[in-house]
Simulated scan of single mutants.
Amino acid sequence: MAESSGITAEGIGAALKEKVGATHVEVEDLSGGCGQMFQAVIVSPQFDKKTTLARHRLVNGALKDEIAAIHAWTPKCYTPEQWENQRKGG
């Protein structure tokens, strides 16, 4: 059994809301509960006019300590407008 990182989906979500002004966050623990692999959908107005790479750098910088403690991290970053279009199937 893998050792727990102590990182939780809830903790990551709270950090994203606080540090990048996320208006919507969905964090999923893909590691079976041991906190080693996460993916997330992050919606923030701070992503406006930023490239995908710049968005990931912003998120990764905000979660520096958390990312250092886990094995894998996959963020999907959207502006509020992009997220609305995504939800509508566009």
Rank of each mutant, 00 (worst) to 15 (best):
K49F: 01
L30Y: 08
D29M: 13
A72Q: 14
D65A: 05
L16P: 06
K17W: 04
S31K: 10
G32V: 12
N60Q: 13
F38E: 11
V25R: 05
W73L: 12
A54S: 13
K50N: 07
A14L: 04
L30P: 10
D65N: 08
T23Q: 14
V43E: 01
A72E: 09
Y78P: 00
A68K: 13
G32S: 10
W73H: 06
S44I: 06
T74I: 11
I12H: 00
K64M: 07
S31M: 08
G32M: 11
V59Q: 04
P45Q: 07
K19L: 05
G35A: 09
T51F: 05
A68C: 08
M37L: 05
E28R: 15
E26I: 14
E28M: 14
D48I: 02
S44H: 04
E28Q: 14
N60H: 08
N60L: 07
V25S: 01
I67S: 05
V43C: 06
W73P: 06
A40M: 11
A40P: 10
I42W: 11
S44C: 02
P75R: 06
N60I: 02
V43Q: 07
F38G: 11
E66W: 08
K50H: 08
V59N: 03
Y78E: 00
D29A: 11
M37F: 09
V59E: 07
T51D: 13
I70N: 02
I70M: 09
I42N: 09
D29W: 13
A62N: 07
C77V: 05
E26F: 12
L58T: 11
G61H: 05
G11A: 02
K76L: 03
G11S: 01
L58N: 10
S31T: 06
M37C: 06
K76N: 11
A68W: 09
G21M: 06
A40I: 10
I70A: 00
I12L: 15
K17H: 02
V27G: 08
G32E: 12
I67P: 01
T74H: 13
D48F: 00
